[in-house]
Every structure is written in structure tokens, then in C-alpha cells.
Design a protein around this nucleic acid. Structure first.
Length: 198
DNA sequence: TTGCGGATTTCCT
DNA sequence: GGAAATCCGCAAC
């Protein structure tokens, strides 16, 4: 089946819905003339005044992008050493984004192995920091339009995820968010070997 | 201007 | 299981 870019209208919707529908889609990165592809198996949502979201306290230079156009990449540095990739969702002025946490390697395995200094496919993309390292994603890609970029984009290759295969849980590493930490906004493919945690 | 702490990963005990 | 690595956003002074 032909692979199609997910259009802007895909992202300009309810963040929880978009998060669930991103599972099974293909994330593509072109780097130094090489194509690296992977299937998304785990994501997390951050939306509105949710205390786990960077944008929960309003607009700042960093969070401005979460209030902007859906379909843009929001890439930030965490713990001073790892990058995290998000895709902005919803209408402008409503702050929301989806963190891509894990994926299954499909193509460009060698590029990922070299970037990660690891050979096991299970260790290449099983966490948000690992995924960015493997795909050579960093701050220079923030604001990239994944609906039409040639450097970083997301396509639907026809792979279908049965509703029953989608599981949810509280998000990882957001205990600081109080009651919001309990929101079941982590979505992943049940029994999938490539998720960050089982 | 200062200081705290983080949407993580890795390595060591 | 625990701690180190290492940069920067942002609230508070």
C-alpha cells in the first residue's frame, strides 16, 4: 500500500484521539542521504493546564510552540543530555503535544545502531531519549513541519492497529504533577516488545 | 543573577 | 536498586 503523509487536519484534533491514532504510524527521518524508518508503538499526551505539561503555566519562549500550529515538531533537551520529540496538536492557542516515546525499527538499522552504540534492535528506540539519539533528532528540528518536511515526517503505510491492542497507563516520570500524574495519557501497543517499559 | 530540578539513560554496586 | 552525567528553563530573589 502507498504511504501517505498524515495531513495537518490529522493533528488538529483532540490530543488523546490523535495520540491513540499515532500508534502504528511510520516516523521517517532522512539523515545524510539515508532513510531511517520506524513504527510508533508508544506515545504520551500533554495538554491544556495539565500540570505535567511544560505549557501548564502559560506561554514562555520555550512553550510558545505548543500553542502554535499542529503538525510541528517540539524538540527539547532533558537532563542536559537527551532530546525528546513531540508533535504539536489541537487548534492554535490551545497548548498540547504528543511525546513519541518508543518505536519499532523498520529501515536504516545500521544508522540507528551506530548512533546508539548498540546493536540489539530492542535497545535502539525503546525510550524518548534513545529514539532521538537513534534518529539524529535534536533541537535543530524543533518547529519542523512533519506534514510536509523531507527531513522528519510521519506517514500512514496502511498498517492497522486493532482497538483492542491499544493499552493506556499513567505517564512515565511525571510524579511532580500531583493528581495530573494519574491521568492515563500514556498509550502503547499491548504486548509489543519495543515499548520503553512493560 | 542565582539556584533548583527535570516528559532520561547508563553504569556500578 | 542507586547514583551520576550535564544543560537550561524559569521562578524567585
Amino acid at each position: 500500500m502507498k504511504s501517505l503523509f498524515l495531513p495537518r487536519s490529522f493533528y488538529t484534533r483532540d490530543t488523546q484521539l490523535v495520540a491513540k491514532e499515532l500508534l502504528g504510524k511510520v516516523l521517517v527521518r532522512t539523515w545524510r542521504g539515508q532513510i531511517v524508518m520506524c513504527r510508533i508503538v508508544e506515545v504520551e499526551s500533554y495538554a491544556g493546564d495539565d500540570l505535567a505539561s511544560h505549557a501548564s503555566r502559560g506561554r514562555t519562549p520555550r512553550t510558545e510552540i505548543m500553542f502554535g500550529e499542529a503538525g510541528r515538531a517540539y524538540v527539547y533537551l532533558i537532563y542536559g543530555m537527551y532530546w525528546c520529540l513531540n508533535i504539536v496538536t489541537e487548534q492554535s492557542d490551545f497548548p498540547a503535544a504528543i511525546l513519541i516515546r518508543a518505536a519499532q525499527p523498520l529501515q536504516g538499522i545500521k544508522v540507528m545502531q551506530q548512533a546508539r552504540h548498540r546493536t540489539e534492535e530492542i535497545d535502539l528506540l525503546s525510550g524518548p531519549g534513545k529514539l532521538c539519539q537513534a534518529l539524529h533528532v535534536n533541537g535543530s528540528l524543533t518547529n519542523e513541519d512533519v506534514t510536509q518536511s523531507t527531513r522528519l515526517y510521519i506517514v500512514d503505510d496502511g498498517y492497522s492497529v486493532p482497538r483492542k491492542h491499544i493499552a493506556s497507563s499513567p505517564r512515565i516520570g511525571v510524579a511532580y504533577a500531583g493528581a495530573d500524574a494519574l491521568r492515563p495519557w500514556r498509550y502503547y501497543l499491548r504486548n509489543n516488545d519495543f515499548v520503553s517499559r512493560k
